[in-house]
Design a protein around this nucleic acid. Structure first.
Length: 420
DNA sequence: TCTGGGGTCCTAGGACCC
DNA sequence: TCTGGGGTCCTAGGACCC
């Protein structure tokens, strides 16, 4: 038996923990650079603010209904997520952190009659210890647990918990679930299914295996089996290392000259390399890309360049120098750039033995010690970060964040103040 | 004026091999 | 005139997820 625990409107809920007066009021959290709405309170959803909607297009509604708007505060959300997961792990050691705001729990071995009560305890426990409201869906497969969670979320009378009982009631619910609400069925597959008369989850559950495998893929066949209660997706308790690490941002102000672009690239290399060292990997490939604003009428330009790193490395200064070289290849004067990014890939473990006699070793070198000192310092001091001069001092290109709340849980000088 | 960021997996098709 | 069969590996691009 799986439980899917999913936080309600997670980013908005994080903000509300520290701004309790915003309960029952319309609130949205914006993407980086204050671009799109990426989390909305129920009240904001009712006002018609769509997921991913550019906020400038909602300016009228925002003003008219006094919608509270926050810039994204991922430091806060990351820490709150950590707290939620930590509460969940008190209920079972077998848990998969699936995303920043949801986790699958194995409730194997529990008496069927106890499931509902445990789910309610989980919900109450998370709420009490973190202030975050969650919904719980229970089912014999992950795909069904996802649907159960949807039902818990969208039907108030369930009080945040839904358990798939007998086949008959389950089928009735599946029939009410549009096929594109099924986990793993996106726009493209839903379109194809719809054209063949498969409109809801029950239709999909009853579709012939051969037809599915022929017209869709073996992955979709797995989804179908899961809908039938045959578990094909296991709980992934150990988070595998990342296979690629990407850092990219749109600029607050478009970048025209090379030296500014160089700073931004260096900053993103630096961030990527930190994530790389976090998982004790060395990168064997580095890629840089730049892009102009794709929404503008002016000619669009996008280009990317990459190079093998031999030997693989995690030493930021070398990565910055290499990225610099790549940027020179693709940068064209005369464009206003909106975005750039850095991708590291082809990872090997830091502890890997050198491949030949002359391969410089990162492991155990002064370079590694230097990186460790930097990382340790930066982990401790979320502000006043130690950084490379190549990243620049002005950072005129940095993203817009006009409405960011404080980092209440991770910075000493941004603690919540309560006036008595 | 203004439009996010970070991942994974699968497939088709080309290059190459015997 | 005529031109096989069976593999592997890599890459780009698409689809999907949050």
């Amino acid at each position: 038996m799986f439980a899917l625990v999913d936080c309600n409107n997670f980013f908005v809920s994080c903000e509300r923990v520290f701004h309790p007066s915003l309960r029952f009021k319309p609130v949205v959290v914006l993407s980086n650079n204050d671009g799109c709405a990426i989390s909305r309170s129920n009240e904001a959803k009712v006002l018609g603010i769509a997921m991913g909607a550019p906020i400038f297009q909602c300016a009228g509604v925002v003003q008219q209904h006094n919608v509270t708007v926050f810039s994204a505060n991922f430091v806060l959300y990351g820490d709150m997520s950590h707290r939620v997961m930590s509460v969940l792990s008190e209920f079972t050691p077998r848990l998969e952190v699936y995303s920043i705001d949801e986790a699958f729990l194995s409730l194997e071995g529990l008496e069927p009659s106890a499931l509902d009560a445990v789910a309610r305890q989980i919900r109450a426990g998370v709420k009490q210890q973190t202030g975050i409201p969650v919904c719980v869906g229970l089912a014999p497969t992950k795909t069904l647990a996802k649907i159960a969670n949807h039902i818990a979320k969208n039907h108030k009378e369930m009080e945040g918990v839904f358990l798939f009982q007998d086949e008959e009631t389950m089928n009735a619910w599946l029939q009410k679930t549009p096929v594109d609400d099924v986990w793993g069925i996106g726009k493209a597959k839903a379109g194809l299914l719809e054209r063949h008369g498969i409109h809801n989850a029950l239709d999909l559950k009853n579709a012939p295996d051969q037809w599915i495998q022929k017209h869709l893929t073996v992955m979709t066949l797995r989804t179908v089996l899961e809908l039938r209660g045959i578990a094909c997706l296991a709980l992934e308790e150990i988070q595998p290392d990342k296979k690629a690490i990407c850092t990219s941002r749109t600029f607050g102000v478009e970048v025209k000259n090379f030296s500014e672009m160089k700073e931004a690239v260096a900053a993103y290399v630096s961030r990527s390399a930190e994530k790389l060292r976090d998982q004790n990997s060395l990168a064997g490939y580095i890629q840089v890309f730049i892009e102009t604003n794709r929404f503008k009428e002016t000619p669009y330009y996008r280009n990317a360049a990459g190079v093998d790193l031999s030997p693989p490395d995690a030493y930021t200064p070398r990565l910055i120098a290499t990225a610099d070289h790549l940027l020179k290849k693709i940068f064209r004067d005369g464009f206003s750039y909106k975005r750039c990014g850095v991708i590291l890939s082809d990872f090997v473990p830091q502890t890997r033995e050198p491949r030949d006699l002359f391969e410089a070793q990162y492991q155990g070198s002064d370079r590694q010690r230097l990186m460790e000192v930097m990382d340790q310092y930066n982990r401790r001091a979320h502000t006043g970060k130690l950084f490379f001069a190549a990243e620049g001092l002005g950072k005129s290109w940095s993203m817009k964040q006009a409405h960011r709340s404080k980092r209440f849980t991770t910075c000493w000088d941004e603690l919540l103040e309560i006036l008595v």
